[in-house]
Computed example of a mutant assay.
Amino acid sequence: MTAFGSVFMPEMAAARFNGTSWSPAEIVSGERIELHPGAHVLQYASTCFEGLKAFKHADGSVKIFRMDRNVARLAQSTELLGMPAIDKPAVTQMILDIVGRFASQVPEPPGSMYIRPSHIGTEAAIGKAAASTATSLLYVMLSPVGDYFAGNDKTLRLLLDDEGMRCAPHMGTVKCGGNYASALLAIQRAKATVQADQVLFCPGGDVQETGAANFLLIDGNEVITKALDQSFLHGVTRDSILTLARDMGFDVQERELSVDELLERATKPGCEAALSGTAAVLAPVGTLLYNGHEYSVGDGLAGKTTKRFRQALNDIQWGRAEDTHGWLTAVEVKA
Rank of each mutant, 00 (worst) to 15 (best):
L142Q: 07
G177L: 05
T225R: 03
N152T: 14
D206T: 08
R255L: 10
V236S: 12
R189Q: 15
S143H: 03
D260V: 14
V145P: 00
D206C: 06
G177M: 06
R255H: 12
L200T: 06
L142W: 01
G249A: 01
V194L: 05
M141I: 13
A212R: 11
V194P: 00
V259W: 02
D239Q: 13
T225A: 07
G178S: 12
I224H: 02
R189E: 15
A227T: 05
V199R: 06
E222C: 09
F215L: 01
T210I: 01
Q253G: 04
V207S: 07
Q195L: 09
E209C: 07
A150V: 08
T243M: 12
A134P: 00
Q253S: 07
A213R: 01
Y180P: 12
S136H: 02
E222G: 00
T210E: 08
L185W: 12
I187S: 10
L217G: 08
L217P: 02
G204H: 05
F250V: 04
P144V: 09
A186K: 06
L242V: 10
E163N: 11
G220C: 10
T237F: 07
M171Q: 11
G151D: 05
D239V: 06
G235Y: 00
L216A: 04
A181G: 15
Q195V: 05
A131F: 14
L156H: 07
E254P: 04
Y148E: 07
A181K: 08
N221K: 14
L158E: 09
A212M: 09
V223R: 01
A181E: 08
N214V: 04
A190T: 04
V223H: 02
L244E: 08
A213T: 00
G211A: 02
R157H: 10
Q195S: 15
Q198C: 03
R189C: 08
T243W: 02
L233G: 12
A134F: 00
